[in-house]
């Protein structure tokens, strides 16, 4: 496992050298989107319209932050850890294809459709430590913009963050199509069978 420090916009070459298990710290522009924001971006593109920000080469973050508006109207991001990425599995492949994002950051991993799109369109999936909301907020230098706030509310809005050394991010899907969590979960499943067998030999309480 190697360690990298990258800056957005990311190129194909930037992400192609990353491998499962590598650790990355990213600086530049991070855009958040959860379920609703994914849906809205794809609806706009479907209608031939543009999303509020050009996403090419950027990193997409599955996150709903704790945000507080300061008296001067600017935002303070108080906590911003990742949300469960699997909820976006049904739309992420299309999102990668149509927006040109190069990195998806979240927690818990993603499925085969996303892994396939990442191989085809050159993108990677990275895990930020689930729950580490204060650590994440520490790396967010400022809020560049926020869209759809009134309509979707704070957690679901599309936030644009400027980040500095955001991480540690662990690559779990790379551009070769390897999916770390799939491999890991197969092992866990095998372990579970053995463990159950041993537990059943023990007396009941």
């Amino acid at each position: 496992m190697a360690e990298y420090r990258l800056r957005t916009p990311l190129s194909d070459e930037d992400v192609e050298r990353l491998r499962v298990g590598d650790i990355v710290y990213i600086s530049g522009t991070l855009v958040t989107a959860r379920d609703e924001a994914h849906k809205k971006v794809l609806e706009l593109l479907e209608k031939g319209e543009k999303p509020p920000i050009d996403l090419r080469g950027l990193a997409l973050y599955h996150c709903g932050p704790v945000a507080v508006r300061r008296p001067d109207g600017t935002w303070e991001i108080r906590a911003a850890g990742p949300t469960t990425s699997m909820r976006m599995e049904s739309v992420e492949a299309e999102f990668i294809e149509k927006t040109g994002i190069k990195m998806v950051i979240g927690k818990g991993g993603m499925g085969p459709r996303t892994a396939e799109a990442m191989k085809k369109y050159k993108a990677v999936y990275a895990v930020f430590t689930g729950g580490a909301g204060a650590l994440a907020a520490n790396a967010i230098k400022r809020v560049i913009d926020v869209f759809w706030l009134d309509e979707l509310g704070i957690p679901e809005a599309l936030w644009v963050f400027e980040v500095q050394d955001f991480g540690p991010l662990v690559i779990t899907i790379d551009t070769t199509g390897r999916n770390y969590y799939e491999e890991r979960m197969n092992e866990v499943k095998k372990n579970a069978e053995k463990i159950i067998e041993e537990l059943l030999k023990k007396p009941i309480p």
Binding site: M1, G21, I23, C63, G64, P65, V66, R78, A79, A80, G81, T83, T129, G131, A132, G133, A134, L135, A136, A137, N138, P168, V170
Partner: peptide, 29 residues
């Protein structure tokens, strides 16, 4: 295991930042 250790390090760091800055430990409160 180095990857597991890196996660626990990040968790402990997060807890300490949250404590010192009175920020939520996790954004899902």
């Amino acid at each position: 295991n180095p990857l597991a250790r890196a996660q626990l390090d990040a968790i402990l760091k997060d807890i300490e930042i949250a404590c010192r800055t009175s920020r939520p430990i996790c954004q899902d409160t």
